[in-house]
Design a protein around this nucleic acid. Sequence first.
DNA 1: TTGACATAGTTCGTTAGGCTAACTAATAAT
DNA 2: ATTATTAGTTAGCCTAACGAACTATGTCAA
Lengths: 155, 155
Amino acid sequence: MSSRFADVKRTPSGEAVRHALADMLHRGAIGLLRGIKVADQETGISPPRLSALSVLVFAGPQSLASLAAAEGVKPPTMSKLIAELEAASLVQKSPDPEDGRGLIISATTKGRKIMLQGRDRRLALLRERLDGLSQREIARLDAAAPILLKLAQRP
Amino acid sequence: MSSRFADVKRTPSGEAVRHALADMLHRGAIGLLRGIKVADQETGISPPRLSALSVLVFAGPQSLASLAAAEGVKPPTMSKLIAELEAASLVQKSPDPEDGRGLIISATTKGRKIMLQGRDRRLALLRERLDGLSQREIARLDAAAPILLKLAQRP
DNA sequence: TTGACATAGTTCGTTAGGCTAACTAATAAT
DNA sequence: ATTATTAGTTAGCCTAACGAACTATGTCAA
């Protein structure tokens, strides 16, 4: 056991490390979402809708198809989600001026506000946990987070 | 704006960074799990069932209620999931010898085998993604992963 | 000891969110 | 100009979640 850990230290990109890393990321992702779910529920917006809204806020206005792709969902599913978000005045559909078939979907001010409030609640929840970490640990998380995102966005 | 970024650089645990960090971790976790969902589908077992099975394999035989609690789900939901897993001979229900109302639910050998295969596939998919990263990126992820786990495991 | 209450699990009916297939409308291509 | 392709929607189905109501068993106190 200890010799394997020694190997790990010496070859940080080797099989053993990747195996362990994959496992840690997997369990970490599951645990993190479980803990954060509560905060999202408080927004009154369901997770799929909140997530779509988040994409619109951070990535900007876009077509239904690209939004569906970003969310890993098929167009009919996104169509329904958007219809519901629109009914709640959280997003807005406008015709694409360059393509009569297309739409430009954007977050409304209200949608943006609610989404950001939800993020604040998540943060508050995370902060409790972050308080147990050193600045060094937080810095390491911060350095890794963009890589995690990149990993997550490569399908 | 650039002055805010300067602040961020100087105080890596400040408000702005934590906001961004919370959001990145959130979206990263969602994207990561979405990406490896496919592996679960290959088992022929739905994610909730596979997850319940996983609890049974790793935490051992237990009552329906505790299983439901472990999965963050209500008893009726778990009751149905278990009925389906039982029909597929992946779990087994036996009466609780100490309580005539209760059940002891356990994974069968078949269930255990299939669950472990599924997990291997999931991790293999994650490892494939890791292969697309540079050694430096992997090192950063590796440095952060235990912190992520620590964060995730504090409910 | 027995009647009242509590608990474990199930059944029922509803809702949300995902899919595919089939449709309409607009654009692109031959 | 006709045909094929593409964007989005509608319809119909499935799974998984919930709460309410039910059954059966266990617990407790009068």
